[in-house]
């Protein structure tokens, strides 16, 4: 039976260290399989989150060999197995225990973003008409599984700890989905400029690179939002013209 070595971060509230485990591996295994096997056989109290084991719920985010990943979608055969695989919690959020982090900040951020506000229904039966073409972009954003890997990798949060000021790529995607929703009537641009500080993003695209749902976060969500903010608040000609244009 083939075995492999894993170094799992064990500890509480940031205090801890890597512990090495050896476990048997079978064909097709993903990192989560190995972690759960170690939990079942050697470390019953190993804390980690997972639900779907199919890349759909965004629970099993961690840093595998230093890269932000979904453990359930990372095949062992995609990693070098001659040295131990390291698995540690996301570093942009406070540590709870072992691989589990406190992601509650994200839930608080979402609550502060103005909710969906649809226009009056188009048809008498209370329904709307939207063409597929018009919803394609929003559907891309709505694929988000809230794994928060993009938040984990964004330097504004990870290195500069500006959680108070900046909502992070996940919630820029969320805001974009609302702003570009064909039925929505609210306007979040002022909030994006002043409260969410979209200006803090300097388009490094690290978020896009780690998104397991392949959402083009920077190009399709953040840059268009930035352009809208610029148009709305900084472009003098547009600002002037707007006086004559009804919204």
């Amino acid at each position: 039976m083939k075995t492999a070595r894993f170094k799992l971060w064990r500890g509480e509230r940031g205090e801890g260290d890597f512990v090495e485990y050896e476990t048997k591996i079978t064909e097709g295994m993903v990192v989560l399989d190995a972690v759960l096997q170690i939990q079942a056989e050697q470390a019953n109290d190993l804390a980690c989150r997972w639900n779907c084991k199919a890349g759909k719920c965004g629970s099993c985010s961690a840093e595998v060999n230093g890269m932000p990943k979904l453990m359930c979608m990372t095949r062992l055969n995609s990693l070098p197995m001659d040295k131990p695989v390291t698995v540690e919690p996301m570093r942009a959020f406070p540590s709870i225990r072992d691989l589990a982090t406190d992601v509650s900040w994200n839930y608080g951020v979402k609550e502060k973003i103005r909710p969906f506000a649809p226009r009056e229904p188009d048809a008498e039966d209370g329904t709307w008409r939207m063409s597929q073409k018009d919803v394609d972009r929003v559907q891309e954003f709505r694929k988000c599984i809230e794994c928060f890997l993009c938040q984990d990798v964004c330097h504004v949060l990870r290195d500069h700890h500006m959680h108070e000021d900046f909502i992070g790529p996940r919630f820029l995607v969320y805001a974009a989905a609302l702003e570009m929703h064909p039925l929505d009537t609210d306007d979040r641009l002022k909030d994006l400029k002043d409260d969410s500080n979209i200006g803090l993003c300097n388009i490094t695209k690290c978020c896009t690179k780690v998104c397991p749902e392949h959402i083009t976060i920077t190009d399709n969500a953040i840059i268009p939002l930035k352009e809208r903010v610029v148009d709305e608040f900084y472009d003098p000609v547009k600002k002037f013209l707007k006086l004559f244009r009804r919204k």
Binding site: G126, T127, W128, R129, M130, S131, Q132, V135, Q139, H181
Partner: peptide
């Protein structure tokens, strides 16, 4: 189902723009 659309769900569309 229609209520979900009023709350922001974005279903795939028919050619005439319905769910």
């Amino acid at each position: 189902v229609r209520e979900l659309e009023a709350w922001g769900a974005v279903f795939d569309r028919t050619p005439d723009g319905k769910i």
